[in-house]
Each structure stands twice: as structure tokens, then as C-alpha cells.
Write a protein that binds this DNA or RNA. Structure first.
Length: 916
RNA sequence: GGGCGAAUAGCUCAGCGGUUCAGAGCGCCUGCCUUACACGCAGGAUGUCGGGGGUUCGAAUCCCUCUUCGCCCACCA
């Protein structure tokens, strides 16, 4: 280091800033330790004794997968739920929000399979018992992670009631439902075409096979007829031809009528297969002739059944060609087989064309592998009977969606519902509670709530079904199983049915619809009355955030850098209800700094207020019969204004929360705290606040009260900083927590239209002078004089009561009131307020007369235009006749005010000697 | 093939059962470290509210249509 290098400038000492992380963790631990998030008992609900105890408020929380790690979707989702639950908790309701985890069959099994794959083994090498034990161990070790991460978000859930979908308690409930439905013939087993994932080696439900449009080809293949000539069939999956059992044409199709009943020599395989007629065939697609592969296509399966064809399964579970196909194809992967088949057909001259064709292809929702339609024995739930009541609940308005449009999506799915394949060829999950007797003479099947050791009919040995249930089978039950169902527990009686479910629209079918159906069927009641669908978190390219795309934002990272409150503020204020939230992973600053800045602003507002209260300060109540009450006459204009604005904000925020408009609530409180309280009120009262000034007590009482109210309004969105500051306000006992503080009530006595109007004038006056100063580059420290002339009584009143305040805020040494707009002989800069109040600031040489004239001229012209338009509007008979009276009179008042203003402007221009 | 949603300041979005609705935050420009806060304060610029029609006294706001994005559903091989 060079010895003579100038020493770097010492960094400016940073004033204390709000530092969230430490505070937040400690606060959460305390909240949880004290059990503040457990629903209050009826006795402790804070309501006046003469009102009935409100019903508990219950949010059904989507249980994250045990293997999940926190992502922004959770961040948005859980914050919304936490806002709602905290709001209702503060309103005095017993608020229950019960967390849990989902065992997540395929997802979890895949994770552990990957782990053992590291040592070169598959689950089959390890064996079922050992494998399940490994998964359990894994879940034991890492399953808590997501729950810890949820706490970091500040989610105020009731951890004393935590559940897990694979616990003994919930497993019992799952069996109860399965056996009940089995006995009522709502569950059946059968051989059908299902979606098969060749990688996960299991069946999937229709919802789990995600359709995506892909560019493929439509091959046209010649099938030689035995009688000579040939038929041309079209297919997107030529390899399946090896499993063809026939060709179908439409019965009315003239082109093929004479060929129905003929036989076709299936190329490559050499088998003879029939041509049949079936109405399910679309004459207009392809060639109008469809090859039938009943074991690998649902439509083909149906047609084949009608024509008594035996399906021919040509693939192994891994989707390789099995031994039923010619030897040279055996063992080939389905896509290799496709190439091989196409190549051979081409060589044989049987390939007519291979045109590009875009069509939907199903993919496994867990691993992305192309699913294979496959004929297999599976368990199904008969959905129609379950769907009818669920559809009725929506139609009759008992089930409501927010935003409403999702109701249509729900209804449409319900109307076209298909049976649900619930068996999975996995090892991780609820084993299907069905046993088969192996004795040839008996062979009975039993579904049982308890494990069976021997055949109840013949005493012979039993074999339990190998499959497990779809994870969503147990998930759909959690609204009531988490509360103890099928037992009639006190929790179930008190907290079921719930009120609201908050989740993403991507699981409406997987979960929401099925909860409604099973809830209605098992308990006779809807599990919740409202479904709030949040938006989806996306990147700037509008892609869904996901680990695989690498475009995700780690909420924990955001929290470490900006604080939980900042994350929550962004999630809530960032977008309206149900609209997607766009976040840029490469620019966290843009997304989260506003929340952090707001928290810091609050922190500093708090510091200013608290540091000026004094140790002995005790707030005087603002209303009521207390002897120390502050009388209305003691309040200044600005006091009355901020109290009125505070009350407006209470009404706005409360209404917004009630209507789920969380962003409106957050922005209303943000605006009040920052613009009204910090930018104006605090600046106004500073002189009264400092030291022992007159009116200091009143100012302290007002600011403390309004700040207290605003903190409570904001608490659902930003729980940590509001708690921290609220606790430091005067009058708090050590055990008080804002999370149990009463939600602010609007107070009619606070409404004060006069104060709102007059303070707005004060703001306009100050703003006008500030603008003039800025325009003419008056040095910040330099005080000017200003003269005000006004026709408005409100303005005169403001000048009477708050002249020194206005003068101070505008940095004016002497704010004079005059009846004469042209009192100053010197050059002045001028402004006219909307109510006609005119402001003149003598700036001597600084003022450019021509510029001033031009400015006024522009203003005059603008006004003149507006007045002309207004005159035309009011002269329009149609308008006067048809528009509401209130609108017409408002427009008249506007015209009067503008004319007044125009008069003042004209006068100004005359006095300044502007050319006309 | 159906259905839905979105198109408003450079960016992310509010406003949409019609008449102070053209807004917020970020960004940008100018000036300020004014003892709560530079994660700040004050002032300022920016938009024929996607295009075109229509209804109306009046439309970003309702209707129709077009364009561009995005999503969901669907057994047309």
C-alpha cells in the first residue's frame, strides 16, 4: 500500500436502520412459545359480553409435500392465508389455521430412488420393506424442513394440531373412506386403458398426465387387403401397429363400405386382422380408416370391445417392445421401435406419407416422461355420484370462487368428470386395504378397515393388494381428517366446516374439487365456503418459476436480504387478487426494496414518535368519559385531518380485507403512513413535538393513537415490524401482542369533511410555493416572502389557523395575506390554486417576467378550454336531463370554481403587465 | 376444436356494475446528507388507456370485431 495515498473518505455514519432478521426469528419463537396462534377458547374471544361469540374462522391450508422446499409459490400462498387469519384473529374470532405435510407418493419415492441410485441400486434391489424404511428415515430427517421454512414466513399456524397424511391417525381415516366407498360400489377394480409412466412405473390419473402440444408426424400406412389392394390408415404412433387387432371405418363411409368384413394382412407382424365398421370413427380425419390398437389407445380399446377383439399388449412396463412382437423389434424402446417400424415400412413401400402434425402428448407430472396409454388392472373411483352434489353446491352459491371465473373451470370439469384411477404401482403411500384369498375354491376379495390375517370366509391365506393409493386420495380428506374424523372429536365439531381455502389454480382438479366431493360425501358438509385462487409466480418471460428452469427465487434468500415483512409486502401489494405475480430473479432489488424501504420508513416514524414521547408520557384518550380526555376544541386543523384520514383508512382497509382485496388494504395503509402521517402530519407537528411546546400533549396523543391504529391495520401484512413497534408504544403491558390486539373500529366522530378539505388547501398552498422555489432555483436554505389572496373562506380559515405551519413547510419567512393580488411592486412568481387562491412570491431579479407571463398564459388557455368544454356540457340538455342530479351539480360547482380561478389569473396577468 | 385471461407511463401493475380515473411503485430528470429515515426529502417529465367499429349526454371503463401474448380443457387416430 502506498503510504502517501490519500486516505479514503470515511463512510458516512449510517443512522440506525431497521434490521429485520434477528428480530423476526426471535419474535416468531416467542409467538409460538406463548401459543398465540392457537385458536382462542370461546371465553377469551375479545367481544363485548352482550354480543354473541363469533364463529371460529378456519382456513384450510394446503399441506406442502414433505420433500418440498420453500419457493415463491408458498411465499405468495402462505402470506395471503396468514393475512386473512391474522385479520380475523384480531377481529376477535377463534382463528384456526392448521399446518400439515403430505407424504407425496411419487414425488417422495422419486427422491429416495435417486438417493439409492447413487449406489447403483434400484428399489427392486433393495426390496419393498427395506425401501419403505429408507423413505421413512428420509422423511424423518428432512420432513421438518419445510415446516421450519413456513415459520420463517411468519405464518401464524397452530402447530399444536400439526398432521401428516401418512400418520396412523390419518391412515385410519383413509381406510375408512376407501372401505366405505368400496362397500357402496363407489370404488371398483377393472381393466382399462390408463396413463402409464414408463419411468415411474405406475399408473397415473388423467390429471397427472399433463397434455402438451408437440410437433409430431402423421404417418399414412398402407395395409394390404387379403382380397387385393390396400387400405391406408393414419397414425401418430406407428410403432403401435405391431399391436393392431383390426382396422375400423365409419359405417356410413362410402369409400370403405365394401371393405367392411374384409381381412387385412398386418405388415411387419404378418397377422390377419379384420376391417370393422364403428360409428366412433371420424370420417374426416386422416384417411377415415383407423388402425385399432386396443391395448394402447382408449378409443381403440372401446371400439375393439364392441367388436369382440382381444387386446394385444406389445410393451413392457418400461415401454419397450415385449416378446409378442417379431423378434427384431423386441427390447426396443418405443421411440426406437417407431423409427425401426417407419424405416421398414418405407423400405416395403407401404409408407405413403409422413406429414408434420401437431398434437397433444401426455407427460408425467412428476418426471416429464411421455406417458403411454396402457391397458391394465387398476382401482377406480366412480365419480358421477360424488360430483353431482359438488356441482350443486357451486350452482346454488354455497361454494364460491374468488376470482369468480374459476367457478366455471370447476363446473366444467365436474360436468365432464371421468372416473378416477386411484391405484399406483408404488411402494410409498397408503396400501390399498384389499385382501385376496388365494385358495382356488374361495378367491374372495375383502376390503377391510383393519388388517386381515386369514380369509374370513375360508380361513385360507390372504394376499394384500400390492398397490398404494394416489396421494390425492388422502389429501382430499385433510379438511376433516386433520381434525380427527372419523371420530367425532371436539376439534371436528368446532372447526369443521372451514371458511376459506387459499391455493393456486393449478390444483383445482387435483385437490380442490376432490375435497369438495369427499367432504360432502363423508361429512355432509362443504369443507369450506370460499376458494381463493392466487396467481402464479412467474419470471419476466412469464414462465412459471421452477427449479428445473432455474428461474426461481429462493424466498429464504430474499428474507435474509430484505426481511420477511418486505417479502410479504411485495407478495400482497404486488398484484391484485388472483393475478399472476411477475418477479425478476435477476433484479431482486426492484421487487423487494419497496417493502424493505417501507419497513425502514415505519421504523423511523416509530423512532421519531417514541423519542419525543418522554419517559413519563402517558397517552391521553381521545374520546370517552375519561377526565383526561382530549376535547375536540384542543385539536388543530392538522390533528383533525390526520384523525379523519386515519379513520378513512380504517374503513378502507377493513372493507378491503373483507373482500379479499389484500393489495388494496396494503396500499391504503402504505399511503396513509407514508404520505399522510410521515410526509405531512409529522412535519406539521414537529415544533409541538420537540421540547415542551404548547399543544405538545395533544400532538403526542394524536400521533400515538393514529400510529397505533395504522400499525394494527398493517399487522396482517407485515407482522414483525408492526409487532416490534407496537409493543414500544405507551401503555403496553409486557405480555401484550399486536397479533391479539383488537382490529381498529371506524369511529363516526372522527369523520371531518371540513378538515379534509382545508388541509388539502394547506397542502396545495405549500406545494405551490415549493414548486415556485424549485422552478426558480431558490437555494433550499433561503427563506422567501409570499403573499396570498383568496376568495375562498376555507383558505382564509386555513391562513388564520395555520399560517405559521404553512410558512414553515414552504420555507417562507413571512406569509402575508392580502386582498390585493398585486400588492407587490416587485417581480413575483405566481400560482393559482384550484379554489382560486392566488399565491405571489416576490423573487426580484430571479423572476423572468416573460416566462411568468407565458406560464400564466398557458394556464389561462388550459382553463379556458376546460371552461368551454364545461359550458358545452352543462348546455347539453341531454346531459342535464339524464345524468344524475348529484353529477350535474358537481359539474356546475366545478365550472364556478374554474371561472373564479380564471378571473384571478386574468387579474394576475393584468397586474404583471403581460401582453394580451 | 372448445373455453378463459391479459394488452394502461421505460418496467411491474392498480383503476373496469359510465361522468374529479388518467394513477401507484420502480426507473428517469433537477435540487437537497433540512438532527426520524439518502432504504430519505422536495420539485419535475412521460401515456391518442393494443387497432377499428358501435351503444350513450358521456367509455380506459359496456357491446362487436381484429391483432398479439398467455393459460386451461378435449379419445380425432
Amino acid at each position: 500500500m502506498k503510504p502517501d495515498a490519500p486516505s479514503p473518505p470515511s463512510p458516512p455514519s449510517r443512522p440506525p436502520q431497521y434490521d429485520p432478521p434477528g428480530l423476526e426469528t426471535a419474535l416468531y419463537e416467542e409467538w409460538e412459545r406463548r401459543g398465540l396462534f392457537r385458536p382462542r377458547s370461546d371465553e377469551t374471544v375479545n367481544r363485548p359480553t352482550d354480543t354473541p361469540t363469533p364463529r371460529p374462522y378456519v382456513i384450510v391450508m394446503p399441506p406442502p409435500n414433505v420433500t418440498d422446499r420453500l419457493h415463491m409459490g408458498h411465499g405468495l400462498n402462505l402470506t395471503v392465508q396468514d393475512c386473512l387469519i391474522r385479520f380475523e384473529r384480531m377481529r376477535g374470532r377463534a382463528a384456526a389455521w392448521i399446518p400439515g405435510t403430505d407424504h407425496a407418493g411419487i414425488a417422495t419415492q422419486n427422491v429416495v430412488e435417486r438417493l439409492i441410485a447413487a449406489s447403483g441400486k434400484t428399489r427392486f434391489d433393495v426390496g419393498r420393506g427395506e425401501f419403505v424404511a429408507r423413505v421413512e428415515e428420509y422423511v424423518r430427517e428432512t420432513g421438518e424442513t419445510i415446516l421450519r421454512q413456513i415459520r420463517v414466513l411468519g405464518a401464524s399456524c397452530d402447530w399444536s394440531r400439526e398432521y401428516y397424511t401418512l400418520s396412523d391417525r390419518l391412515s385410519r381415516a383413509v381406510r375408512e373412506v376407501f372401505v366405505d366407498w368400496y362397500e357402496r360400489d363407489l370404488i371398483y377394480r377393472g381393466k382399462y386403458i390408463i396413463n402409464w409412466c414408463p419411468r415411474c412405473l405406475t399408473a397415473l390419473s388423467n390429471e397427472e398426465a399433463e397434455k402438451e402440444d408437440e410437433d409430431g408426424r402423421l404417418w399414412r400406412i398402407r395395409y394390404p387387403l387379403e382380397q387385393g389392394g390396400h387400405l391406408v390408415v393414419a397414425t401418430t404412433r406407428p410403432e403401435t401397429m405391431l399391436g393392431d387387432t383390426g382396422v375400423a371405418v365409419h359405417p356410413d363411409d362410402e369409400r370403405y363400405r365394401h371393405q367392411v368384413g374384409a381381412m387385412v394382412r398386418l405388415p411387419l407382424a404378418g397377422r390377419l386382422i379384420p376391417v370393422v365398421a364403428d360409428a366412433a370413427v371420424d370420417k374426416d380425419f386422416g384417411t377415415g380408416a383407423v388402425k385399432l390398437t386396443p391395448a394402447h389407445d382408449p378409443l381403440d380399446f372401446e371400439i375393439a370391445q364392441r367388436h369382440g377383439m382381444e387386446p394385444l399388449d406389445i410393451m413392457t412396463p418400461e415401454a419397450r417392445m415385449s416378446e409378442v412382437v417379431p423378434e427384431r423389434f423386441q427390447g426396443l424402446d418405443r421411440f426406437e421401435a417407431r423409427e425401426r417400424v417407419v424405416a421398414e415400412l418405407s423400405r416395403l413401400g407401404l409408407l405413403e406419407s409422413a406429414e408434420p402434425h401437431r398434437h397433444a402428448v401426455g407427460h408425467c407430472y412428476r418426471c416429464g416422461t411421455v406417458v403411454e396409454p396402457r391397458l391394465s388392472d387398476q382401482w377406480f373411483v366412480r365419480m358421477k355420484p360424488l360430483a353431482e352434489p359438488a356441482l350443486a353446491a357451486y350452482r346454488e352459491g354455497r361454494l364460491r370462487f374468488v376470482p369468480e371465473r374459476w367457478g366455471g373451470v370447476y363446473a366444467q370439469w365436474m360436468e365432464n368428470i371421468r372416473d378416477w384411477c386411484i391405484s399406483r404401482q408404488l411402494w410409498w403411500g397408503h396400501r390399498i386395504p384389499v385382501w385376496y384369498c388365494d385358495l382356488p375354491d374361495c378367491q374372495t376379495t375383502f376390503a377391510s378397515r383393519t388388517d386381515l390375517a386369514a380369509c374370513p370366509d375360508c380361513g385360507g391365506p390372504l394376499r394384500q393388494d400390492e398397490d398404494v393409493l394416489d396421494t390425492w386420495f388422502s389429501s382430499q380428506l385433510v379438511p376433516f381428517t386433520s381434525l380427527g374424523w372419523p371420530d367425532r372429536t371436539p376439534d371436528l365439531a368446532r372447526f369443521y366446516p372451514g371458511d376459506v381455502l387459499v391455493t393456486g389454480p393449478d390444483i383445482i382438479f387435483f385437490w380442490v374439487a376432490r375435497m369438495v366431493m369427499s367432504g360432502l360425501d363423508c361429512t355432509g358438509q362443504l369443507p369450506f365456503g370460499t376458494v381463493y385462487l392466487t396467481g402464479i409466480v412467474r419470471d419476466p418471460e412469464h414462465r412459471k418459476m421452477s427449479k428445473s428452469l432455474g428461474n426461481g427465487i429462493d424466498p429464504l434468500d430474499v428474507i435474509a436480504r430484505y426481511g420477511t415483512d418486505a417479502l410479504r409486502y411485495t407478495a400482497i401489494a404486488g398484484a391484485a387478487i388472483g393475478s399472476d405475480v411477475i418477479l425478476d430473479p435477476n433484479d431482486l432489488e426492484a421487487s423487494f426494496a419497496p417493502g424493505r424501504n417501507f419497513a425502514n420508513k415505519l421504523w423511523n416514524v416509530g423512532r421519531l414518535i417514541l423519542s419525543n414521547l418522554g419517559a413519563e408520557y402517558e397517552s391521553r384518550p381521545l374520546a370517552g368519559h375519561h377526565p383526561n380526555v382530549i376535547r375536540r376544541e384542543e385539536l388543530t386543523l392538522s390533528d383533525r385531518w390526520i384523525v379523519a384520514r386515519c379513520d378513512e383508512t380504517v374503513r378502507e382497509a377493513t372493507a378491503a380485507f373483507e373482500r379479499f382485496r389484500l393489495n388494496d388494504a396494503a396500499l391504503a395503509v402504505h399511503g396513509f403512513l407514508w404520505n399522510d402521517l410521515a410526509d405531512w402530519y409529522l412535519e406539521v407537528i414537529k415544533p409541538r413535538l420537540y421540547g415542551d411546546q404548547p399543544g405538545g400533549d395533544v400532538a403526542r396523543a394524536v400521533v400515538t393513537r393514529t400510529f397505533d391504529v395504522a400499525l394494527r391495520l398493517l399487522h396482517p401484512v407485515m407482522p414483525f415490524i408492526t409487532e416490534t413497534l407496537w409493543r414500544r408504544l405507551p401503555g403496553r403491558s409486557p405480555g401484550d401482542s399486536i397479533s391479539l390486539a383488537p382490529w381498529p373500529e371506524s369511529d363516526r366522530r372522527a369523520a371531518d369533511a371540513t378538515a379534509l378539505r382545508r388541509f388539502a388547501l394547506l397542502q396545495q398552498l405549500v406545494g405551490a410555493i415549493r414548486a415556485i422555489r424549485a422552478e426558480y432555483g431558490v437555494p433550499p436554505g433561503h427563506e422567501v416572502r409570499a403573499t396570498v389572496a383568496t376568495p375562498s373562506s376555507d383558505a382564509r380559515e386555513v391562513l388564520r389557523s395555520d399560517r405559521t405551519t404553512a410558512a414553515r413547510l414552504a420555507k417562507v419567512s413571512a406569509l402575508e395575506v392580502s386582498d390585493d393580488h398585486a400588492e407587490h411592486a416587485e417581480a413575483t412568481a405566481n400560482a393559482v390554486l384550484p379554489d382560486g387562491t392566488s399565491v405571489s412570491v416576490p423573487l426580484g431579479d430571479l423572476v423572468d417576467q416573460d416566462k411568468e407571463c407565458a406560464r400564466l398564459q398557458a394556464e389561462v388557455e388550459r382553463l379556458a378550454g376546460a371552461i368551454r368544454a364545461q359550458v358545452a356540457k352543462l348546455g347539453n340538455e341531454q346531459f342535464v336531463a339524464k345524468a344524475p342530479a348529484a353529477v350535474v351539480s358537481r359539474e356546475r360547482e366545478k365550472l364556478t370554481a374554474w371561472r373564479e380561478q380564471a378571473g384571478v389569473l386574468a387579474e394576475k396577468r393584468r397586474r404583471l403587465g403581460c401582453a394580451v
